[in-house]
Amino acid sequence: MPDQDERHDSPESEGSDGEAGSDQKPSKGFSRRQFIKGTGLAVSASVFATEGLLKAAAPDQAGAGVEGPGAVKVQLRINGQLRQLQVEPRVTLLDALRNRLDMTGAKKVCDRASCGACTVILDGRPVYSCTVLAIDAQGKSIETIEGLAPKGTLHPVSQAFVDNDAQQCGFCTPGFVMAVKAYLDKHPHPTADEVKASLNGNLCRCGTYMGVRQAVLEAATKMTRKGGRA
């Protein structure tokens, strides 16, 4: 989003917010017309600044140091397996999964915690992985759609999505499947209305909601009949 900062030309927009950073701040009365897109040195300047801060803070506070801003070692437990990566603190769990681990089931769609396509399960709860830092997911159990069922088999939720045509283009589908899985794990006997309420964090553009409603109810029935869940 390189086109955002220079809008902070209004007199009040800087100051206390630290928005855009002082290194990019145009002087008062500077008109937009004169603006320069994505001004230089922004990144490296902020890196220097944080290094200074780190040195100031770390010595006084044993056990409360800071890491980064450069790449740091991050260990994630994904589908029961420990994975080590070297990423900057700013890397999201979604980007870590997709770009570093080639686990691309979770999708990047809104990238702002608005659509649910990136849903994974963190310590039993569905979360928007686009808005969880990878470094913050350490020590937690991360379930992704890749770990839902053994290779070559389908989890009952995925199967119900097939059987009820609860997917068209399929790009939102893994997020829906994970949200449903997380929900059914805790609510094995949902009503139709509860199913709808449980999916108010996932959007579909093709319009597959009719199939999804049926699929969740059917998956719930099959999973409880089997006496357990995958």
């Binding site: 089931g105 069922a149 389908l154 995925s158 199967q159 399929g170 589908t173 893994p174």
Partner: peptide, 9 residues
């Protein structure tokens, strides 16, 4: 291609 999509693969 349903299983392919709903399994995330």
């Amino acid at each position: 291609d349903g299983p392919w999509k709903s399994s995330g693969t």
